[in-house]
Simulated assay, not measured.
Amino acid sequence: MKPYKFIKTGADWYIDLPEFIEQGGSIGDLQMVDGADKMLDMMAENCDLVILCIDKEQFDGADLITLIEKCDPYIGGGYYLMQKYEGKEINRTMWLCQVTEFVFGDIPLQIFVKREKS
């Protein structure tokens, strides 16, 4: 389980992943869009920063995000469904881009996520 910082700049969310940029990635690739931004809005509770612990293996208190459609390699990433968040039924889909492959080494069938509370 590793914590990742997500930062909102204006209306846009980005994952703070300097190692991706250092390896030739662009800041635009780090933008969270197509449902992931709405999830971060909900998780951040009106803040411009949220830290999420994320892993492919289940860990205590984590919510499950399930792959529902792997995208064509040209587009990259996949569409995921998060049925519950912190015990509440939400049934939200989101696209997680090719940066997911950078983080995990592949497009996992399941991702476990938990918001770090400050």
Rank of each mutant, 00 (worst) to 15 (best):
E45Q: 14
G105H: 10
I21V: 14
L49R: 13
D55W: 03
C97N: 15
L40H: 02
P108L: 01
D60K: 09
F59Q: 05
Y80A: 03
E101L: 07
M94C: 15
P108N: 04
D16H: 11
C47G: 12
G24N: 06
M39I: 14
V50F: 02
D48C: 09
D48N: 15
S26G: 14
E116P: 01
F102G: 02
K88V: 12
G10K: 07
M82V: 13
I21S: 03
L52N: 00
Y85T: 10
G105K: 08
V103K: 01
Y85P: 01
E57C: 04
D72I: 11
F102A: 02
D72E: 14
I90M: 08
M82N: 05
M42V: 14
R92P: 00
Y80D: 02
M82R: 06
V50G: 01
A11N: 12
G105L: 07
L52H: 02
K84S: 09
G78H: 06
D48M: 05
Q23R: 13
M43V: 13
I107W: 08
Q98C: 08
D48H: 13
T100D: 03
Y85M: 15
M82T: 10
D29Q: 15
C53P: 00
K117H: 12
L49G: 04
K117I: 13
K114H: 06
M43Y: 11
K114P: 01
F102T: 02
E86T: 06
D63E: 10
D106T: 15
D41A: 07
K88M: 11
L109M: 10
I75E: 11
K5V: 15
M94G: 13
I54N: 00
R115S: 08
C47Y: 11
G76E: 10
S26L: 12
I90T: 08
L49A: 09
K2C: 04
L64Y: 02
E86C: 07
W13E: 05
D72T: 14
D34P: 00
F59N: 06
I7F: 06
D16K: 08
P3T: 12
G61V: 08
I111P: 00
T100G: 06
D72Y: 09
T100C: 13
C53N: 12
Q23C: 05
E89M: 11
I15A: 01
C71G: 06
M1H: 07
I111T: 04
E19A: 10
I90W: 09
Q98I: 08
A62G: 04
V33D: 08
E101M: 10
D60N: 13
I111D: 00
D60A: 12
S118N: 12
E101Y: 11
G76N: 09
F112W: 15
G24M: 08
W13P: 03
C71E: 14
I51Q: 04
K117F: 07
